[in-house]
Design a binder for these strands. Structure first.
Length: 273
DNA sequence: ACATATTCCTGGGGGC
DNA sequence: TGCCCCCAGGAATATG
């Protein structure tokens, strides 16, 4: 499940490989999750140069030289992987892109087992509207700003707020649980009950956890791999996520699991309050 | 303004 | 070996 560190890892690799490249072919193997669909999608990309690869929240953004943006959301099981030019397509592959810059060429595959992900071509103006709906980027905003985003006098749970992309961008189920554990705060807490000190600890934990994971190229809990097909290394550093019953790394108490906001939620009943 | 349920989808694992 | 059922979940949408 790519969240900010995984999506950012993919973005960096794409930026390195694709910046300045022109799209020379678009082979849609399985239509339905791209917009506009089919031939219109292909025609909107052919001959365009990728000027830059950016990211907003969990969305990867290809900036094209005609001003349009290609938005890619990997959702649960989406993958962007570089493959050989003669790659033989497999069951869940959706689109294969060929790109070139002089003598250099790259073949990029978009595959998605569960088919939740999408690719969408939008204008510069439409992208600005989409981007503005997201909350601040946790690795770019200040701790003060992030703490302030959690200060809403709200009755909703902390976990719900952390998963809400309009509050803070890029956090998903893995990092929501890890952030709460680092900060020593229960995910079930109501926002309105958080002290200023707790909000500051949460904001600080957001940056710490996301930075540490990014340094390990993200977490491969299930399906995630980067553009080279390699897994992220942060799994072994997770302290609560998918560690139900394991001893807490800080105090040895067994990690517990509940369902909160329709999501599996993991916490240490001793370290978090 | 909040929660909760439903929807999309497929593979993997447990139970028998 | 092979069913059946449940589970994983990002985010939009509907309902309470």
């Amino acid at each position: 499940m790519p969240e900010l560190p995984e999506v950012e890892t993919v973005r960096r690799q794409l930026s390195r490989e694709l910046s300045g490249m022109t799209i020379t072919s678009v082979a849609i193997l399985r239509s339905g999750r791209e917009a506009p669909s089919g031939v219109d999608f292909e025609q909107a990309l052919l001959g365009r140069m990728i000027e830059a690869v950016e990211r907003r929240a969990k969305v990867i953004v290809w900036r094209l030289n005609d001003g349009n943006r290609v938005l890619v959301h990997l959702k649960m099981t989406g993958r962007l992987v570089f493959v050989a030019p003669d790659y033989a397509p497999m069951k869940h592959d959706r689109i294969i892109f060929a790109c070139a810059r002089g003598e250099e060429a790259r073949t990029l595959l978009w595959a998605d087992v569960r088919q939740f992900g999408f690719m969408k071509i939008v204008s510069e103006e439409a992208y600005a509207v989409i981007a503005s709906a997201y909350g601040p980027e946790p690795l770019e905003a200040s701790v003060e700003m992030l703490a302030q985003r959690l200060d809403r006098g709200s009755s909703r749970s902390l976990k719900t707020a952390l998963l809400d992309q309009s509050v803070i961008a890029g956090i998903g189920n893995i990092y929501a649980d890890e952030i709460c554990h680092r900060a020593g705060v229960l995910p079930t807490r109501r926002l309105a009950s958080l002290s200023a000190e707790e909000r500051w600890r949460l904001a600080d934990a957001m940056q710490t956890v996301l930075r540490e994971s990014l340094a390990q190229q993200g977490t491969s809990a299930n399906d995630y791999v980067d553009t080279r097909g390699e897994r992220g290394g942060f799994l072994e550093f997770l302290r609560v996520y998918q560690r139900t019953g394991d001893p807490c790394s800080s105090c040895g108490t067994k990690i517990e699991r509940i369902v909160l906001a329709q999501r599996s939620t993991h916490y240490c009943p001793h370290c978090q309050s």
